[in-house]
Write a protein that binds this DNA or RNA. Sequence first.
DNA 1: AATTCATTTGCAACAATGTTGCAAATATAG
DNA 2: CTATATTTGCAACATTGTTGCAAATGAATT
Lengths: 137, 137
Amino acid sequence: MKPIEILNQRNLKRTSCREGIIELVMNAGEALSENEIRERLQGNYDRTTFYRSFKTLEEHGILHKIVVDNLLVKYALDKTVTNLDDHAHFYCQECQTVRCLENIPVTRFQLPEGYQDVATEVLIKGTCATCKKQQGS
Amino acid sequence: MKPIEILNQRNLKRTSCREGIIELVMNAGEALSENEIRERLQGNYDRTTFYRSFKTLEEHGILHKIVVDNLLVKYALDKTVTNLDDHAHFYCQECQTVRCLENIPVTRFQLPEGYQDVATEVLIKGTCATCKKQQGS
DNA sequence: AATTCATTTGCAACAATGTTGCAAATATAG
DNA sequence: CTATATTTGCAACATTGTTGCAAATGAATT
């Protein structure tokens, strides 16, 4: 599905900023940070605009946010767009990329009495295949 | 084990700030943020001192860091102090507390070919038992 | 095409979190 | 008590994110 269709489907105005973000994230193959998106996106948008766009796109189930430690925030397409289940994420400590591990579903954990879960985040940190090879180990 | 012993054991100088942090985190029953620690700790320490203390204590396996979304950072005792295995964490969206779920170990996931894991973080978000009751649902 | 109106954008200002360099203070060993 | 390496506090700065408000823009209507 095209960015424009995704926006129309949710009654969101199609601005060049939103379109561009969706387009980029769609074709990236990895989650992208605000900075990475700004670098690759033509048309210099204000930081405020980006933050508000991310928020809107997230609230409408177009993007999902992955946070590594603090301060490193990345975005990927949401499951309502990709039709994938909740999955784990992999953060490569070498190249700082975040990838969705679509084959590793997030299982529901047995919580203590009285606890109710709403969402579960699984973040695996390590070295990705590409960086592993380059280490020539 | 007492804070002083923990510090001595690792050849770290026992300063009142480090001692205080360990003492607090030890008796808190939940993970504490920089702000929470500062509020409860006598002796006004500089923010810089806290950040450097956390870093030192983390590097020496005394504390471990739990990050919720971005910007919310909490600390709890590390497994090298508690002798517990890696475990999941629960973040209550109502009272903003973070608790270690010692009974929910973090399992190793089967990664794609070539990927190597170093650490895995499992954060479950929802409502804790206390807040659940108060909602009177 | 032009008009209208709600939404979105850019700007400025601000807040929170975290880092770095450096001089003064402090912990520990001798 | 002294010497020395470590730690602390301060100032300055960087980054990330938010808010209010006026200007610009998207999309529906004429």
